[in-house]
């Protein structure tokens, strides 16, 4: 197997006195699709938020493409990463959020174009072409000049995915991207994710409650329970053959609803 693009090494995270993650070890390989499942409050979201540099680990290391994300070397010692260091290392990572977080003061097209132009300093015409292409891909080819407030939740989430894709990330993080949607809009968003998973060679980490969907597209499933990854393997290994009691209870509860 190829070298992992991301490695978590004994990563802990506490919020105040609450220990959310208690020693996460995890490899993410290029193009690998990983689903993270588990009860709410188990720290699933925190795992990917740390990789996106939105939360700083309390201890442990996250290595991205060979570089320590949260620590850097300064005159022979490892110190806390500067903003500049974080920017250099997180450039290949993209994220889609539960609440979309589109920029409400920009059109859909501008939402997709702002970062490639200002962050990557790419040519505006090329970026526009790519943004148009991505928006068409997610089925919003007729909405370029709309503002986010004019869209449905499902449409907003598809824009958010196009916006992340235009940056050409090597790793895409999905943080419960269908949880805030009306049930009838979930399908259209999952369709887009399925399309990305099938046709793009980026690594994907999905934190999700859409169990069947996750198992369908994931190469690897992680079961997170009380801050520890207690099960990992292929979908069939984890779901069908695991004897982990808590996992079975969790799955059972899901299947019932």
């Amino acid at each position: 197997m190829t070298e992992p693009i991301v490695q978590y090494r004994d990563v802990h995270k506490s919020f105040g006195d609450v220990k959310v993650l208690k020693g996460i070890n995890l490899d993410i390989h290029p193009a690998e699709k990983i689903a993270v499942i588990g009860p709410s409050g188990s720290g699933k979201t925190t795992i990917i938020r740390m990789l996106m540099t939105l939360e700083e680990p309390t201890s442990g290391d996250i290595i991205v493409d060979g570089t320590n994300l949260w620590k850097m070397e300064k005159s022979g010692k490892m110190v806390r990463a500067s903003e500049k260091h974080l920017r250099e290392v997180r450039g290949d990572i993209g994220m889609v959020f539960q609440h979309f977080n589109l920029f409400p003061h920009m059109t859909i097209l501008d939402n997709c174009m702002a970062a490639p132009i200002h962050v990557k300093k790419e040519n505006k015409e090329e970026v526009r072409e790519r943004a148009v292409q991505m928006l068409e891909r997610v089925g919003l080819g007729d909405k370029f000049d709309s503002y986010p407030s004019q869209l449905s939740g499902g449409q907003k989430q598809r824009v958010a995915m196009a916006r992340a894709l235009v940056m050409r990330p090597k790793i895409m993080l999905f943080d419960e991207v269908t949880s805030a949607l009306d049930p009838e809009l979930v399908g259209e968003v999952l369709e887009v994710i399925r399309d990305i998973a099938k046709n793009d060679d980026m690594a994907m980490v999905l934190v999700t409650h859409e169990m069947d969907f996750a198992l369908d597209i994931a190469d690897k499933v992680l079961f997170l329970d009380e801050g520890v990854i207690t099960e990992q393997g292929t979908a069939s290994e984890v779901i069908e053959h695991s004897t982990n009691e808590r996992l079975q209870t969790f799955l059972h509860r899901f299947r019932k609803v």
Binding site: R87, F97, N101, F103, A114, V119, R163, A164
Partner: peptide, 16 residues
Amino acid sequence: KGQTEAAVALNMSRFQ
């Protein structure tokens, strides 16, 4: 806060 987070996810600098 989500606006800042989305901007971080797009790798914008503090100033951007």
